[in-house]
Computed example of a mutant assay.
Amino acid sequence: MLSGRILTPQGWITGSIAFDQRIQSIEADPQAGAGNNSGLTILPGFIDLHVHGAAGADIMQGGDAGATVARSHARHGTTAMLGTTMTATDNSIRRALKGLAGVIAERPAGGARMLGVHLEGPFLSIHRLGAQPPDAVAVASLELVRSYHDLAPIRALTLATEVDGHLALIPMLKEMGIRVQLGHSNGSYEDGVAALNAGAAGFTHLFNGMTALNHRHPGIAGAALAHAEYAEIIPDLQHVHEGAIRAALRAIPRLYGVTDATSATGMPDGEYGLGSQRVYKCLGCVRLATGSLAGSVLTMDQALRNFVGLGLDLADASNRLSLYPADYIGESERGRLVPGAWADIVVLNADLQPVAVFVEGEAIDLSTH
């Protein structure tokens, strides 16, 4: 049982929450009034739908890398995630998916729940690869996606809609239960709108890796701002200027935060791997040798503090890191504190630093290893 100021779907209460693997009850303390005697804030655990690595481990390594990533991010309040791949050779992608399959099937002790895969590439534009290596597949096929899906469940897939054949693929991917996201795209505003009409559901790291908003050529970013219900954004305050984040918050009702975290997350400055690329952590960000941003070292607790620093109230910031990503991929028993939901919980002090994290009721050791 925990006591404190608890965020529920109906709003804040001061009281207690009882749980084992799932939440058993949430009770208000009639003596507490509006105060919070414990000084603790209790939120739903964070859900990160775009994470490549942490603690020196990269999802593309396969093997036990996914477990290392899940444990590292759990210490920052992430209780569920999608392991995210990179554009790579077919063999490399299959190796990564086989490694993720084991972590998805059985949550590692002390780690976040791996809900499935975000396949970021190889179905991207060669003109908007960003930090992705030059291994984009010329044309995606349903057969190829199915063969990947057979190795590990794909929950989200990023593609460039303007590439020949991709638009026709979207309804079939939707039928498979995959959330199609537009990203690493050189497409036009009209391409973006056509993809949404075909069943695309979101946008990958909004503003990054896509045609920008221009008043005569609104681009993929413009399609998102004008029409999207959901889009992910990296709120590390380096990938996107705070003014652009504010614009997106006003335009997109369920804009949610992701880390796009790399193997350099939680590590000292130096050289690290991002798929087949070498990246360099310095001054709180990760870059290619060319100087281009290449993922981040963001954690979800810092994303929360950044959102609050931009002026969001704590409940709104929490929703954008828990409730909205859960709803986006259809996880109705996560991302909210209600009886019967999984006991995925993060407890914060007055400085919004995690002091306790529970994943499906398991208390996570927050010390670094």
Results as ranks from 00 to 15, higher is better:
residue 128 R to S: 01
residue 263 S to T: 13
residue 288 L to P: 02
residue 255 L to F: 04
residue 172 M to D: 13
residue 332 S to K: 10
residue 330 G to T: 13
residue 120 E to D: 06
residue 243 G to A: 15
residue 84 T to R: 02
residue 14 T to M: 12
residue 240 V to A: 01
residue 3 S to I: 02
residue 65 A to W: 01
residue 230 Y to H: 13
residue 178 I to Q: 00
residue 350 A to I: 14
residue 361 G to F: 10
residue 211 T to M: 02
residue 351 D to S: 12
residue 234 I to L: 03
residue 7 L to A: 11
residue 219 G to F: 01
residue 50 H to W: 03
residue 101 A to C: 12
residue 46 F to I: 14
residue 75 R to A: 10
residue 192 G to N: 01
residue 78 T to P: 12
residue 32 A to P: 01
residue 281 K to I: 12
residue 356 A to R: 08
residue 171 P to E: 10
residue 113 R to P: 02
residue 332 S to W: 08
residue 281 K to E: 11
residue 265 T to R: 00
residue 177 G to R: 07
residue 151 L to Q: 08
residue 210 M to V: 10
residue 56 G to L: 04
residue 301 D to T: 05
residue 136 A to L: 13
residue 357 V to S: 07
residue 235 P to H: 01
residue 312 L to A: 03
residue 165 G to Y: 11
residue 339 P to Q: 08
residue 128 R to C: 04
residue 58 D to M: 01
residue 23 I to G: 05
residue 358 F to C: 05
residue 220 I to W: 07
residue 362 E to H: 12
residue 312 L to K: 00
residue 353 Q to E: 15
residue 309 G to L: 09
residue 58 D to V: 02
residue 345 I to E: 03
residue 99 G to H: 04
residue 313 D to A: 09
residue 23 I to V: 13
residue 230 Y to I: 02
residue 21 Q to R: 14
residue 52 H to L: 06
residue 356 A to P: 05
residue 118 H to F: 15
residue 342 W to F: 15
residue 218 P to V: 06
residue 152 A to M: 03
residue 99 G to M: 07
residue 356 A to I: 06
residue 259 T to E: 15
residue 4 G to D: 02
residue 264 A to K: 05
residue 348 L to W: 00
residue 316 D to P: 06
residue 39 G to R: 07
residue 149 H to G: 10
residue 154 I to L: 03
residue 154 I to F: 04
residue 188 S to I: 08
residue 17 I to V: 11
residue 121 G to I: 00
residue 65 A to M: 07
residue 84 T to S: 12
residue 208 N to T: 12
residue 147 S to Y: 08
residue 113 R to Q: 14
residue 158 T to A: 03
residue 319 N to H: 14
residue 23 I to P: 07
residue 130 G to P: 06
residue 334 R to G: 02
residue 342 W to C: 11
residue 145 V to R: 00
residue 232 E to V: 00
residue 111 G to D: 13
residue 74 A to V: 08
residue 82 L to G: 09
